[in-house]
């Protein structure tokens, strides 16, 4: 059973978003890390790169699988979590405490189409 953190917004491709000071903080959900297995590499965009909603902005890799990261919102990357470069396994340990990138959103209304925790739980249940 995957953990779902209250107060975050979720996408159908299992990224989470937390809006902080107008910025979107983006990570992957517990469900995503569990289905990947041991994560060995996180491919992140550079600062100042533009990302577009529903397009891939990077990837996470485990020993046997690789999965694209799909942008839940559009905007410009302001921060990348460089700790993950050396310790990608942190995404397995606590996917909600370890964000991947922060984004200055170009259209904050895009978050309205994301799911809240309850909706994401229902979504996961419907996927089983």
């Amino acid at each position: 059973m995957s953990k779902i953190e209250e107060g975050l917004l979720y996408s159908e491709s299992h990224e989470w978003v937390k809006v902080e000071d107008g910025k979107a903080v983006i990570g992957i959900s517990d469900f995503a890390q569990k289905s990947m297995g041991n994560i060995v590499y996180v491919d992140m965009p550079d600062e100042d790169d533009d990302i577009a909603r529903n397009e891939d902005f990077g990837a996470v890799e485990s020993v046997k699988a690789a999965s694209d990261l799909i942008a839940p919102v559009s905007g410009t990357v302001t921060d990348r979590n460089e700790v993950l470069e050396d310790e990608p396994g942190l995404l397995n340990e606590d996917p909600y405490a370890n964000w991947i990138i922060k984004v200055e959103m170009s259209d904050p209304s895009e978050t309205e189409s994301l799911m809240d925790a309850a909706a994401y739980k229902a979504f996961l249940d419907s996927q089983e």
Partner: peptide, 12 residues
């Protein structure tokens, strides 16, 4: 580094 291989991200 096998994850990069085609059998995983094969369509791309």
């Amino acid at each position: 580094l096998q994850a990069r291989e085609q059998h995983i991200r094969r369509e791309k």
